[in-house]
């Protein structure tokens, strides 16, 4: 089962290596990892998606909490979160194929951000499942390159994950 875990950490050098080192050291399988600074510049937020059972998630949370730089760890249930991942895709596209591709892009809520005589570059930001569907639709044209940011997630409604003052 996939688990989305949000981690608030001190925003200073070496923290990311401590967190990522822990995954390999303890044998956790990580699907994605995204990190960025929060509203409080002294705090970074890491979002990880991990694959495993309940035991693994409990251990992962406990081991993350044990790191001195970790301020808060919160596992987000699938029904309480909104998640997004940004993907940039460069596909092969002859001028004749452009309008066809544009239709798919518009229907799927993506955007063309660059074009060349032989390629088009598309930006799409959505859930991982939606990104996968889009990739299937675009695959027949010939995918040249894919770059993705990893999943970030936030809670639905008024709930927040913040540092206690």
């Amino acid at each position: 089962m996939k688990h989305t875990i949000s981690i608030l950490v001190e925003n200073h050098a070496g923290v990311l290596s401590r967190v990522s080192g822990l995954f390999s050291r303890r044998g956790f399988n990580i699907d994605s990892l995204a990190v960025g600074v929060t509203a409080d510049p002294s705090v970074s937020r890491i979002t990880i998606v991990a694959d495993g059972d309940e035991y693994m998630v409990e251990q992962l949370e406990k081991q993350l909490n044990k790191l001195i730089d970790t301020i808060k760890v919160r596992s987000l249930a699938p029904d309480e979160l909104l998640s997004r991942e940004l993907q940039l895709i460069k596909i092969a596209a002859t001028p004749a194929q452009r309008s066809e591709i544009l239709t798919i892009v518009e229907i799927m809520g993506a955007k063309i951000i660059d074009i060349s005589p032989s390629t088009m570059t598309i930006e799409i930001s959505d859930t991982t499942a939606h990104l996968a569907r889009f990739e299937e639709l675009i695959r027949p044209y010939g995918i040249k390159e894919i770059v993705r940011t990893g999943v970030i997630a936030i809670q639905k409604g008024a709930d927040t994950i913040a540092v206690k003052k």
Binding site: Y55, E58, Q59, K62, Q63, N65, K66
Partner: peptide, 8 residues
């Protein structure tokens, strides 16, 4: 004292 040891 180490919560990570419990259940490990």
């Amino acid at each position: 004292i180490d919560p990570a040891e419990i259940g490990k």
